[in-house]
Amino acid sequence: MIDAQDRQIIEVLQGGLPLVPAPYAQVAETLGMNEDALLVRLAKMKSRGVIRRIAAAPNHYKLGMTSNGMTVWDVDDDQVAELGAQIGALPFVTHCYERPRALPDWPFNLFAMVHGSDRAEVEEKRAEISAILGEASRAKDILYSTRILKKTGLRLKAKG
């Protein structure tokens, strides 16, 4: 959970961290805090998992990773934990989750995101996943992204 001061910090930082030599000092000044107090707060938010990391979000398209496939699999519930861990450990899988099925239309419970420079590369990687899952996967599909419709990250609503 977060308190009022954490919330203020998040509101200032959700747009990003300034690219200046002393970014935390600048943010602290905006918040009317001192830098040490801000660093302590940020460290606590990190240890609680509220902040996962402070880092760059790369644009896959600009890096030549123009093909992005959400591979989905219907894996036996008894095996999904073990197989999911194996798929998640593959170097080319950027996200891997077990999610609920939405039957009858959506039988898939394992989602693994794969990026590549083109669809042929994504298909090669998908075949590697398929080989690992073998008969434990009863159905599969791949959904390519064709357009980024929005990408803002978390936005807290202003509290009135």
């Binding site: 959970m1 977060i2 998040i10 930082l13 959700q14 747009g15 990003g16 961290l17 690219l19 200046v20 030599p21 940020l42 938010m45 609680r48 998992g49 509220v50 902040i51 996962r52 990391r53 402070i54 880092a55 760059a56 979000a57 790369p58 644009n59 600009k62 890096l63 990408k151 990250g153 978390l154």
Partner: peptide, 27 residues
């Protein structure tokens, strides 16, 4: 480093630089 980061952000090679928040960990 700072000028290159500013350029990468300006060219949208980096879409965002800053903390990644976990909404679930915030409740």
């Amino acid at each position: 480093l700072l000028s290159r980061l500013a350029r990468l952000k300006n060219d949208r090679v980096i879409t965002r630089f800053g903390p990644f928040f976990d909404a679930a960990a915030m409740g």
